[in-house]
Design a protein around this nucleic acid. Structure first.
Lengths: 341, 341
DNA sequence: TTGTACGCGTTATCAA
DNA sequence: TTGATAACGCGTACAA
């Protein structure tokens, strides 16, 4: 079972190896491989055969050097395990692939410093950067904006930063969620927050605060937008005696419901819970989550469109209007129960 | 030969730009940037200053060409949304980072053809390949094994393929799961399968089949290991009147429980359900899943150790023994109910 | 310690 | 149509 290499070459075959094997010049091989110029059929066949034979694959490093671009797009996001991002990235991916780009996706763990570092680092090998729910401080963003490589901000609006931004409306659906809760008779709720660095968290909290208008009093409890983070934050939330938990996102809601169950509370009988994002799981857990469907695919698509413009034209396109998002009522919310006490 | 460029330095600074700005040679800049050789403090400072000033980042393409390696490791997995893989990859990542490697992770969507293609494609820019729960047919694997770049197979054993393989024991924990079910009085179950191309699925099914010894009769129903795939397969599963559903993995179990609920059945009162993998969610959903804790981190660690050996020594290490995995009893399984009529 | 010059594998520009 | 050959940006012998 020892590996038998084709006779001769020990290391990776290069374009020269193929050229020699096919009895042509490297220029011809290059032309055949890229399919650009016209090459006589017979030579092309010889080249293909030799290439297959040698299992030749062009070196991306060399090609990148010659072309001045690796044709890579870097994607940075805070949490790879959050299915929400997956849907967004998938759509970007489709667009990128159509245009011959590949994506390098990196998880920043939600840490602003790590995120900026990977962004800077990625810059050495990508033609553009997609920043999803970025936690990078404004100054860092400006720094990035000054670079030659294009970047687009997804799920974040940062005034004064010269970068195209694509977002979904977080404010109004969150208001609607609150209104829904108010109509069910809730007057006292807790907002179980996401990362303090996340724009979406600020937006959602801002919307929640304005819900006093509906007669809904909401206090803020910090968490980090993960299942376990939310789970751990529930005891603190319960100290405020809420009849409803407004969670930053679906993952948080899942963690919260789990903790509530641990505390002997049932949802929505004892307490209502809302999510945000409408990830696949949202409808499959018990109780199914009342949440907000973000237009994930649209977000990804728009982001890529913007990126493409920058890649091709070297100019900064304007940011499109926020996309709208709808509230989905399911079974994690119900009539407010009389306060315990 | 200085300004061939129009207005200012619109394009990326190169090592030469920095050298000129700092008044040193490119060799010195290179030495400072890589921190390898000794350079007089003053010059080093000048270089750093110039580099910062120009926001210089070495081109990975150029460095890769010069070094003969991009220092990239490719990771291919069937489903990025499955938190199981995330834990495995995270540990690989740690190891890789320590050794100055970066990871390019790609999702194959569980499609064997797409997987082989991305593998081949990645070969142009990586020093090694990590194949997680690979669906590539044996022939393709052999083809990969013949290449110069090292590769390690995770979650799969394929005899006759000259590649190191790291797996967890799937067979015995699945047997234990069945035994547990048998002890609860179950006699008729359905195995809700994963991808037919997955080794783990074959292993688990093999274990399940041997459970006849416990008096547990299990029939096979196909699914794909996703929440929605399992959800869709449940109606077919119910035709066999099972008192238990043995799911390929946790995601499947979640989807199955959801479908069961839709059908008016409650878990575990009406029917028991088991998962596999023990992803984070497993303990947070209702009912908490009876499942198997795979040693995800260990798997990732071992895989990286193997990779490292191959990277450094150019020889194929032996595959280590399978890791063991434990059954975790939670609340999705219970006493068998009398069969519905 | 620092600098010069060459090589890495490809693509692109010329000639032939 | 094909073939030499000059970039591309960086690392590194080898020289100074």
């Amino acid at each position: 079972m020892s590996t038998q290499r084709p006779e001769g070459s020990r290391s990776r075959p290069t374009i020269a190896t193929v050229a020699e094997a096919a009895g042509v010049s490297i220029a011809t091989v290059s032309r055949v491989m890229s399919g650009s110029s016209k090459v006589k059929q017979e030579l092309a066949d010889r080249v293909h055969e030799a290439a297959d034979q040698l299992a030749y694959r062009p070196s991306r490093a060399a090609r990148g050097l010659a072309l001045g671009s690796l044709r890579n797009i870097g994607v940075i996001l805070p949490d790879l395990t959050n299915a929400y991002f997956f849907d967004v990235v998938n759509e970007m991916h489709r667009g990128a692939a159509e245009n011959g780009y590949r994506m390098l996706v990196a998880d920043s763990n939600g840490d602003p410093d790590e995120e900026l570092n990977t962004a800077l680092d990625l810059l050495g090998q990508v033609d553009g950067l997609m920043l999803l729910s970025s936690r990078i401080p404004t100054a860092g963003l400006k720094q990035l904006a000054r670079r030659e490589a294009p970047a687009v901000l997804v799920n974040r609006i940062e005034l004064g930063v010269d970068l195209p931004m694509v977002v979904a409306d977080n404010f109004s659906p969150m208001m609607q969620l609150c209104s829904h809760l108010a109509q069910l008779g809730h007057t006292r709720a807790v907002y179980l927050g996401g990362s303090e660095f996340a724009w979406q968290n600020r937006e959602r909290w801002r919307a929640v605060q304005s819900a006093v208008g509906f007669g809904l009093q909401v206090t803020h409890v910090s968490a980090d937008g993960t299942v376990e983070g939310a789970h751990a934050a529930v005891p603190e939330a319960l100290e405020h005696d809420p009849t409803a938990l407004i969670c930053f996102n679906d993952l948080s809601a899942i963690g919260a419901i789990s903790a509530l169950r641990d505390a002997g509370l049932s949802v929505p009988e004892d307490i209502s819970v809302t999510g945000f994002d409408d990830i696949v799981l949202a409808r499959h857990i018990a109780p199914a989550l009342t949440t907000v469907t973000s237009p994930k695919a649209q977000l990804g698509r728009r982001a890529w469109d913007l990126m493409r413009v920058m890649l091709d034209s070297d100019e900064r396109p304007d940011s499109p209007e926020p996309l709208s998002a709808q509230v989905v009522l399911r079974h994690s919310t119900g009539p407010a129960r009389i306060l315990r006490g």
